[in-house]
Simulated scan of single mutants.
Amino acid sequence: MLDPDTMAIITGAAGTLSADAVRAGIPKLRDGLKRVRVTLARAIRLAGPDEQGNALAAYDATAAAILERRPTEIETQLTQARSELATQLERILTAYLAAYPEAKSELAILASSAGTARRTYIQSSHDQSTFVGGDLQGDLTINHGERRD
């Protein structure tokens, strides 16, 4: 069992990576998953070819399962995808740090960017708008209706 500090780093790094994968929403989910795969491969660079291959194969299986789903409610799917990715990434990074404790400081850097990770908010009503890091992406019309005194 790893110490609580190391587990916090793993959780932070997994959270940062999974948030990065889904931040652009459903239309760019495939791109986000690819981007995170590249980051993960760099993060576990100390692992041997077999270990790295196994870790990336586990990640790929999770990513493929997410992409095979039919889009349902956007918020639900993104939340579920982020949760599944975070769980898989925690498994991968836990095994990695158990084998390569000297990589802890590198993963800590990745985990520390969690506070600056951009958040995606989806607002739906008659229309749909996406906010990334508080910035509106696309158009937004707010209709408060007629004022009645």
Rank of each mutant, 00 (worst) to 15 (best):
A55D: 02
R70A: 15
L97D: 00
L40R: 00
T76L: 09
A61M: 08
L85V: 08
E73G: 10
R42V: 04
Q52Y: 04
Q52D: 05
S83G: 14
A111K: 03
S83Q: 13
A95Y: 06
S83V: 12
E68R: 15
L67I: 07
T39D: 08
V38N: 10
L56F: 03
T72F: 12
Y96D: 00
P71I: 13
A47W: 02
Y100R: 03
A61H: 09
A63F: 06
A98T: 12
I66D: 04
L78N: 07
A81V: 06
A103N: 06
E84V: 10
I74E: 15
Y100I: 00
Q52S: 13
R69M: 11
P71M: 14
T87W: 08
L85C: 11
Q80C: 06
S83R: 09
V38S: 12
T62I: 07
A98F: 05
R91S: 15
A108I: 03
E73Q: 11
S105N: 10
E51G: 07
A98G: 14
A57W: 09
E90W: 04
A63M: 05
E51A: 09
A108T: 11
E75I: 09
A65N: 13
I109P: 01
A41V: 02
A111R: 01
A43R: 00
K104C: 05
I44M: 01
E102L: 10
I44A: 02
A114E: 12
L46F: 08
